[in-house]
Each structure stands twice: as C-alpha cells, then as structure tokens.
Write a protein that binds this DNA or RNA. Structure first.
Length: 373
RNA sequence: GGGAGGGUUCCCGAGCGGCCAAAGGGGGCAGACUGUAAAUCUGUUAUCUACGAUUUCGAUGGUUCGAAUCCAUCUCCUCCCA
C-alpha cells in the first residue's frame, strides 16, 4: 500500500467539486487544502507551533534549497525535516523543478539532468532524477515530487513538447529510483505548457506510471488567468479520480476557488507570506496594502471578518507602524494573518462542498472581495 | 581674541562658470509580488494654468552673455590655538 492515499468523501451537488482526505504517515489532510510554503525548512516568520495554531495541516519544503543549506545529510541526521523543524504533521517537498524555471540564468538542462549554479556562491551542482530522489528521501517528507522541468510562458510548442517528454522520462527514472514507498509517496507532475495535446499526452503518460498522486505544474508562470482556467478545465479531468490532485504554485483566493471548482485538492503558494512581508494583507474585502499612509490612524483590525490571532490582538495602524519601521514583528503578523486567511478560506470551501453550495459560496465571496466575476 | 573649514532641494551628501531642478544614499508616497535567488523589486519625490513655464543651493549686493559654482559684506555652525 502506498504511503499516501486519497479518500473521496463527497462531491458538491451544485458544482461537482470534491471533498476528500489525504492520508499520510504523519496524519490526514482534509482537502481541498492550502499548503504554506517553507522553502528553507521554515515558513518564513512562523514557528511550527504557530503554524499549528492557524491549522496548517501540511507544509512544503524544497529540495534545491535544503540541499544547498544545510545539506540533506544534516537534515537526515536530525530525523528528517519533521525532526529538524519540529513539525509532526505531513510535509511535501518540491523537487527543484521550479528552480529549473526560476533560476533559468544559472542552469543548463540535459537529458541526464540539470547543472545548476548555486544562487548563493555560484558553485556548480548537478541534479538528476536519481540524485533528487536521494535528497528527497533524506529530507523525509511524506509526499515527494518528481524532478520535472517547469517550462516558461510563453514558450514555443516544440520546446514545450521536448521539455514535457523529457519530464516524463525523468518521472520514470524518479519512480525507478524511489524505493522508500512505505514511508514516502512520489507524485508525478503533468507539464505541457498551454498546449492541450501536450497536456493530454503528459497526463496519459504519467497515469500509466501509476503514481499515488498527481500535480499539475507549469501554471501560474505569468499566463492570463483565463488561460490557466482553460488548461485546468481539460487537464484535471484526465487525472485519476482516486488520487489527490495538486495544482502547484497557486495562489490567490480566486485561483484557489477556481481550482477547486475544476477538481483540484491541493495548492501551495508563497503569495501569503511574500506579500505579507512586503506590506499587503488579504482580507474578505480584497487586498489591502497596509503599508499605505491612509492606514496610519486606522485602529481597526486587518480584516473586519477575521478572528485570527493577529486580528484579535493588533490594529492596522500598529502593524503598519511595525512594517514602516522594518520591525520583525510586522512581517510575522502579516504573514500569520495571510496564511490564516487562505487556510480558513479552504476550510469554508470544504464546508461549502459539504453543504452542496460551493457555487453560491464563490459568488458571495467574490462579491465581497471585489472580484468582478 | 587669533586661525581654519563650512552652510545645497524633507534629511545626509556630491557638485565647484554653461551638459543643474541639481549625482548618490536615506526618508516619504505609490505600485508589483503566484511549486521563494524576495524583510525584495519598480516608479515617484521644488512649484505650476505641467511635451512648456516659474522659483531654488544661508542673506544681500556684485562680476559675467550665463553663477549652487567667482568677488564683497553680513549671518550662522564646526574645529584648532589663546
């Protein structure tokens, strides 16, 4: 039996969205779910205990970053990421495939793998599907991602096709190299850019490899929202209904809801922590750039409808003051609130599915948030 | 009392006859942020009846076609010697 399994609980009668549960060696996750990103074995600004306080059920970490610092051997010796960062709930590690995209100026792709230059000291490193599986095994996450190439947008058909086919070959090699299936589950990643036939081909090829879960990668890389929805419309249904579906790198409140409506179970994104550190907070009435001068005397809470720790205790004016002064607490409080906002949004989404009213929930949410559609 | 150096746009600080509304920081204001090279990045920051015009570089007067830049006086600050 695979380390990670998916249990479908019910589908929303109004929209067809699915409510489920992902079972892992470190406990179960209610889906749809949002996973905070903790690239360097830390969700920036948040302790593991605080993540529990906001009901984070699973977090993400990253192969490339943890390999460079502190090195997977140290993490392994600490008892894997779970022991190292004192987090006893599920963890997912990304493979470094996204860094193939984001560090495009510092790497070279070959059939064998990717030669990286460290963004820290410029030193040269090689990642192959096999080496990545070794690192991810040492990191010890419950869910590990296959080593893929996240193609840029826009990209030529021929390039995306070659990239996608190579990603499939790498997925086969990953599966071959991944032995610890009792403790970890390896998810495949569908690529294919914005090309329908490539997405179909990718999904079918990966399905044949029978992974315990599937991710859709290569989206939210700068393409228009409508295009992403279109790709999801035809890609998500191709994935096995009895396995979890993970949309990588998404995102904003509307992307999450639109993703769930299209059958996605898992999401991750740096957005809440990053925009939080940069002075923007998510609220039920839309984004608020809390750093702006107009909030200097606003002693109300970040979001009038929020009951998170931050909103229960601190005002907009105070948090703005902290941010303007570069105080660490400001970054922490905005990150905290934003993470809570998305995790709580997914909780409401799950309840709406349970009540067969996700479509209505979406309309109400969008109206209040200020989305035009 | 004697000597030396200096006062530049919100702040610090370059500029040392025209290419200066004046470098560069900082601060302010605004925007971006989507599997984290991000506590980052971008724009903007004299005034106006703004693709042009007007007033700025301690004050006043002068030299010059032209001055933040040269000269004189005044004023204020810093340092050194008594």
């Amino acid at each position: 039996m695979a380390a990670v399994t998916y249990e479908l609980i019910k589908t929303c009668k109004q929209t067809g969205a699915r409510l489920g549960r992902v079972h892992t060696p470190h406990g179960s996750i209610d889906t749809p779910t949002f996973m905070p990103v903790g690239t360097l074995a830390t969700v920036k600004g948040m302790s593991s205990e605080e993540l529990k306080e906001i009901n984070a059920e699973i977090i993400l970490s990253n192969t490339y970053h943890c390999y460079l610092r502190p090195g997977q051997d140290i993490v392994k010796q600490a008892g894997g990421l779970h022991g190292f960062m004192n987090w006893d709930r599920p963890i997912l590690t990304d493979s470094g495939g996204f860094q193939v995209f984001s560090l495009s100026g510092l790497r070279k792709i070959t059939e064998e793998g990717v030669i990286f230059r460290s963004h820290i000291d410029g030193s040269k490193h090689t990642f192959t599907p096999e080496s990545v599986m070794g690192i991810e095994n040492d990191l010890g996450a419950d869910i590990i991602m296959a080593f893929d190439e996240c193609a840029p947008y826009p990209a030529e058909y021929d390039y995306v096709k070659k990239s996608m086919e190579r990603t499939t070959r790498w997925a086969m090699r990953c599966k071959e190299a991944h032995k610890d299936t009792e403790r970890q589950s390896l998810f495949g990643i569908v690529q294919g850019g914005m090309y329908k036939d490539l997405r179909i081909e990718s999904a079918n090829q990966l399905k044949d490899l029978d992974f315990p879960g599937y991710a859709i990668g290569g989206l939210s890389v700068g393409e228009p929202a409508e295009l992403m929805y279109e790709v999801l419309d035809y890609t998500a249904p191709l994935l096995p209904a009895d396995k979890p579906r993970y949309l990588m790198g998404v995102g904003t409140p509307n992307y999450l809801i639109e993703g769930v409506l299209r059958g996605i179970d898992m999401f991750d994104c740096v957005l809440p922590t990053r925009i939080g550190r940069n002075g923007t907070v998510l609220t039920s009435r839309g984004r608020v750039i809390i750093r702006d001068a107009k909030y200097s005397r606003d002693f109300s809470k970040l979001d009038p409808d929020c009951d998170c720790y931050v909103c229960r205790n601190y005002s907009r004016a105070y948090i703005r003051h902290l941010l303007k002064c570069g105080e660490l607490l400001g970054l922490r409080l905005t990150s905290w609130h934003n993470l809570y906002f998305l995790i709580n949004l997914m909780k409401q989404v799950r309840q709406a599915i349970m009540d067969d009213r996700l479509g209505s929930f979406k309309d109400e949410f969008y109206l209040k948030y200020g989305y035009t559609k």
